[in-house]
């Protein structure tokens, strides 16, 4: 279980879980392990041109928004704290968390002023406008590979959030495996939480990503929860950050005709098999080896004219 997976599991167990802006792209962030309001980049102009061109073409299937960093109007709404931009109901008032790949960029200052949390790998303290910040150092991963993160949050939230995270860690430990778990309060500004896996109980459960959560490069819109693929020749899907290693990726499809879509990972064709299910859906699966640190991108290609009218993607499952 990777450090990112542990952090996601802890955050998911908070009640209520914070809404997340994942700015980890193009490298692995916390998506797809945690439902995020939006993915994106902190500084699109700093990306290599080819990576920028790849990301700017992706769209949220529900609202048609590109990743954060590529649409100033949509970004402004999110920075201004508009509940809809964060996927919240008005008055819901959930905590907001930003996953950062590095020090906080100045453009995100409105978020810190509004009290948003930031989760980033441990490093220099950075500049945090707004309410005074406390830091919870998070040690996560395995005892063989400890990864250090900082959760930066308004100082008055440090104590209750630390307690909530500790309770979440205890709940996680109860699911199995042998863990090192601990918390320590150094001062009102500084605390630490340790959640290290010494020996896993079993393989982690599969990761299930619904179609609605997949950024993709087609027009927006879902039909009964499925991403329509009728008439599509090619479609890219952002799978997000996953640790390197062997996995089985399965796409759940409906309306598959006689010609199976061809599966791509990282732009390269994969050998996949199509298995029909009794409910009329089908699973397109491939055993693959994930490589690199960049967010994974799946592709589906159909020979011209081969996509039947009802073809749709219901979701993706990643199993270890």
């Amino acid at each position: 279980m990777s450090a990112t997976a542990i952090l996601a599991a802890l955050l998911r167990r908070l009640a209520p879980a914070p809404v997340v802006l994942d700015l980890g792209l193009p490298a692995a962030g916390i998506f797809p392990r945690l439902h995020v309001a939006r993915c994106g980049v902190a500084d699109a102009a700093a990306l290599p041109a080819a990576e920028r061109a790849l990301l700017v073409g992706l769209r949220d299937p529900l609202r048609g928004l590109p990743p954060f960093g590529f649409d100033r109007a949509a970004d402004a709404a999110l920075l201004a704290g508009a509940p809809a931009a964060w996927g919240e109901e008005p008055g819901e008032g959930r905590d907001r968390l930003v996953w950062l790949p590095g020090p906080p960029p100045a453009a995100l200052a409105p978020l810190w002023q509004d009290g948003a949390w930031a989760l980033l790998r441990s490093g220099p303290p950075g500049s945090w406008p707004g309410p005074e910040r406390g830091r919870i150092m998070l040690l996560a991963g395995s005892t063989a590979a400890v990864e250090r993160f900082d959760l930066m949050l308004p100082i008055d939230r440090l104590a209750p959030v630390l307690e909530a995270l500790h309770a979440a860690a205890q709940a996680l430990v109860a699911t199995g495996g042998r863990w090192q778990l601990g918390k320590r309060v150094v001062s009102a500004r500084l605390a630490s939480l340790t959640a290290l896996l010494e020996a896993p109980a079993a393989l982690p459960p599969p990761l299930v990503i619904p179609a609605a959560a997949l950024l993709q490069d087609g027009p927006p819109g879902l039909e009964d929860g499925a991403l329509p693929l009728a008439g599509v020749a090619r479609r890219r899907l952002l799978l997000g950050g996953l640790p390197p290693g062997p996995v089985r990726i399965t796409l759940r499809l409906r309306g598959v005709g006689s010609v199976a879509p061809v599966l791509f990972l990282g732009g390269l064709r994969q050998t996949a098999s199509l298995l029909p299910d009794p409910d009329g859906t089908a699973r397109l699966g491939a055993a693959v080896t994930l490589e690199g640190t960049a967010a994974q991108v799946l592709g589906l290609a159909l020979p011209q004219g081969a996509a039947p009218p009802g073809l749709g993607l219901l979701g993706v499952e990643v199993a270890w």
Binding site: P48, A50, E51, A53, L54, G57, R234, R236, V262, F264, G266, G267, L268, R269, G292, A294, V297, G299, A301, P303
Partner: peptide
């Protein structure tokens, strides 16, 4: 070979890659 048609035909031993992702390799 980076080709807009991901299903294009390349000579033996040549992988066809999505041009939008070719830079990663």
């Amino acid at each position: 070979a980076a080709c807009a048609d991901w299903l294009a035909q390349a000579p033996p031993g040549v992988a066809v890659v999505d041009p939008a992702l070719a830079h990663r390799g």
